Computed example of a mutant assay.
Amino acid sequence: MIRWLIISICIFFSFNGEAQNIYDLNHTKRYADYLYSSKEYKRAALEYERALFMGCKDSSVYMNFFKSLRISGSPDLGKSVLRDFMANNQVCQPGVSDEYIKLMLSRRSFVTADSLIKQWNPYSKDFLRASSFVLQRKYKDFDSLYSGNNMHDESLKGIKLKVEDITNVKLKSPLLAASMSIVIPGTGKMYYGDWKDGFVSLLIVAANAWQSYRGFSKKGSDSAYGWIFAGVSLGFYSGNIWGTWKGTKRRNKRLLEEKYYNAEEYIYNNF
């Protein structure tokens, strides 16, 4: 009887000891890795952060932590760990440094990223420099980097194609568009691609101008009818010129932004 009592007590404390250890460093790392492999990046980042607070120095934990922060897109996570990491890692091993710089680029901390690329010399240095240039819209700097890369690194070729898409966009001249609308209302909008709005503008200005002409033809300069429609026509005419100028600039900006976002998406997908 006493023997069975002792065995039961030992089993109880054995299970209790196991229960108390599920939050130790080893279990935390394993659980974080499980969440990471399951693509639950925000929860994985929290578990990796817990492991780092426990004193973990494993480079793979740092790398997965930085990746999880970047992919989850949670800017408020990991601030204290990132601050401590920067304070204690003036020299950072390649691999870990690459992931940290990618995180900084994804958070658009370009000054920090550019400084660390020079300081840490990461594995994918040229790719990270190229990514930083493009994300900051420094296309001339990217071209200089690409032309100076004699091997034409494969990682840069995809970015090069995206930059060419941006720089080869055919922009319309706001001045030319406005000038066309001065001569013939609506044609400036047709020039930059808004045929429907341009045709409507032409009809409205022409219709009001015609009504004004009819009024003046019947009663001369004393025609209130003529002056009313003349004022309306002048208002639409002036507004059409201004709208053409603004519309051309909006069209150019929209096209450039579309190409930029394509390049940005390509870069982030290749991080």
Rank of each mutant, 00 (worst) to 15 (best):
residue 143 D to A: 07
residue 143 D to L: 05
residue 144 S to N: 07
residue 145 L to Q: 02
residue 145 L to D: 01
residue 145 L to H: 02
residue 147 S to R: 07
residue 147 S to F: 05
residue 148 G to H: 02
residue 148 G to Q: 02
residue 149 N to R: 04
residue 150 N to M: 09
residue 150 N to F: 09
residue 151 M to V: 11
residue 152 H to A: 13
residue 153 D to R: 08
residue 153 D to Y: 09
residue 154 E to F: 11
residue 155 S to R: 11
residue 155 S to I: 03
residue 155 S to T: 08
residue 156 L to I: 08
residue 157 K to Y: 06
residue 158 G to H: 05
residue 160 K to W: 11
residue 160 K to F: 14
residue 160 K to M: 10
residue 161 L to W: 05
residue 163 V to N: 03
residue 164 E to P: 13
residue 164 E to R: 09
residue 165 D to A: 09
residue 165 D to T: 09
residue 167 T to V: 08
residue 167 T to P: 10
residue 169 V to E: 15
residue 171 L to Y: 08
residue 171 L to N: 07
residue 171 L to E: 07
residue 172 K to M: 13
residue 172 K to V: 12
residue 173 S to M: 10
residue 174 P to G: 06
residue 174 P to F: 14
residue 174 P to R: 06
residue 174 P to I: 12
residue 174 P to T: 04
residue 175 L to P: 06
residue 175 L to Q: 10
residue 175 L to H: 14
residue 176 L to N: 05
residue 177 A to V: 10
residue 177 A to G: 06
residue 178 A to V: 11
residue 179 S to P: 03
residue 179 S to R: 15
residue 180 M to H: 01
residue 181 S to V: 02
residue 182 I to G: 05
residue 183 V to Y: 09
residue 183 V to I: 15
residue 184 I to P: 00
residue 188 G to S: 01
residue 188 G to W: 00
residue 188 G to M: 01
residue 190 M to L: 15
residue 191 Y to R: 00
residue 191 Y to C: 00
residue 192 Y to F: 10
residue 192 Y to W: 03
residue 192 Y to D: 00
residue 193 G to R: 01
residue 193 G to A: 01
residue 193 G to F: 02
residue 193 G to W: 01
residue 194 D to W: 00
residue 194 D to R: 00
residue 195 W to Q: 04
residue 195 W to A: 04
residue 197 D to N: 10
residue 198 G to E: 00
residue 199 F to G: 03
residue 199 F to I: 10
residue 199 F to L: 12
residue 200 V to Y: 14
residue 201 S to D: 07
residue 201 S to V: 05
residue 202 L to P: 00
residue 202 L to Q: 03
residue 203 L to W: 10
residue 203 L to P: 02
residue 205 V to I: 13
residue 205 V to Y: 03
residue 206 A to L: 11
residue 206 A to K: 08
residue 207 A to H: 04
residue 207 A to G: 15
residue 208 N to G: 10
residue 208 N to S: 08
residue 209 A to P: 08
